[in-house]
Design a protein around this nucleic acid. Structure first.
Lengths: 220, 220
DNA sequence: TAGCCACCTTCAGACTTCGTTAAGAAAGGG
DNA sequence: CCCTTTCTTAACGAAGTCTGAAGGTGGCTA
């Protein structure tokens, strides 16, 4: 579960970062609005935590531009206690939830969970392709009618490759999906996971695009 | 039994919170209307206690929006002594019961019990699955004809896993069912309770989905 | 055809998560 | 207030998962 934290206060940011990482999220952390917007538009996240008081570009503006671009990424905003108007403006601008500083980390965690559950609930029918059926709600996968047990990383990869199929996923993209920016995986873990997927389904499910990445063919 | 308390007065809220927690409810407490509505729409509660005088979004409005969304969650409202009109408006808006401030905590508890009994009566037939029969009205459970004694937490877990079976319940979901947002359980209580359930029924009743949660298979 | 490079395959050890147990703490009932 | 039931904590072991490295394969280019 990849998450973008946008917070300029270093102490607070570190606290949040640490807490959420320990919770199992892949957390990327940016400290100003314009790079955050850039990242949000060019990369894939499951969720964003956005401080409204930011240098360079105001958090509200980031949110508006994000929504203008058509994204419905779940966003939780952080506001100062007295900035009531900000909060209202934030919700109006399309935030999904908010939290008032100072807040309890436990509450943040709870709200993120709720947010993710909601966003998981709202969309997502079964994904069916090439005999594979993948249920994003429950993370259950079956192949030709039989359930297949996937590890979390395998599931993430497969999900990405299948939504939608027919697109080449670059190695970089996939690596970032699994590891974010921080924790670099220095070896060939990606190949290993792909290998496992091929073994569990079929060797020719995932095609290698040499020098670029991987691909699941659109129709089969 | 998970309950949402919506009350902006800190002293009063603390009192109610404490009393109801001691009574065995899992109590979550929010202090303003808009986050309350949010929570009510996105999470699962068995009951709400709603103060009508609230900042940000009036309690009445919360109630109306909740009913508009199609929910028939039992709601008890709290009103000031002189706000007769509020009370009437509250009942019109779909409240199930009301209490006038100041009130006695014992009376609150009694009314909640009554409310829950009523709402339990209206729904819920026996749940039968894999030799287990679970009666939501009386909280009695039997396995292959013989009664089984479950502790409250065990019952909650089993009930959740069985309604309906075949769905993966994430650890997060189950933890929130048992503990709400407040008390973080830092250790492996969930595993322990699951273990007890398995012991009382059958080892393979509940399947673990590693990294995700637990599952009771649909047909057996 | 030789050589390089990207990718594949395999596997062992590190690391995580989960199950099991037992003991002590907390809650509930008489 | 004591006794019983229930819940939590903690330790340890088992099982599952991930990583990093080594060696192998095959395509591409010169």
């Amino acid at each position: 579960m990849r998450l973008l934290l946008i917070e300029d206060d270093v102490a607070l940011g570190e606290g949040i970062h640490q807490a959420l990482s320990r919770e199992g999220y892949t957390v990327d952390w940016l400290k100003d609005g314009s790079s955050a917007l850039h990242a949000l538009l060019s990369e894939t996240f499951d969720l964003a935590v956005l401080d409204l008081g930011l240098p360079r570009m105001d958090g509200l503006q980031v949110l508006r531009r994000l929504r203008d671009s058509g994204s419905n990424l779940p966003v939780l905003i952080l506001t100062a206690r007295d900035a009531t108007e900000d909060r209202i403006a934030g919700l109006d601008a399309g935030a999904d939830d908010y939290l008032i500083k100072p807040f309890d980390l436990a509450e943040l965690k709870a709200r993120l969970r709720a947010l993710l559950r909601r966003s998981a609930g709202r969309a997502q029918a079964l994904i069916e392709h090439a005999g594979i059926s993948l249920n994003p709600g429950t993370q259950q996968v079956s192949y030709q009618g039989n359930p297949v047990a996937l590890t979390p990383k395998e599931y993430q990869l497969l999900h990405e490759l299948l939504s939608p199929p027919g697109r080449v996923m670059t190695r970089d993209h996939l690596m970032q999906l699994l590891y974010g920016w921080n924790e670099e995986a220095e070896s060939n873990t990606l190949e290993v996971h792909i290998h496992h997927l091929r073994k569990k389904f079929s060797t020719d499910l995932i095609r290698t695009i040499r020098g670029v990445g991987y691909l699941v063919e659109e129709r089969r």
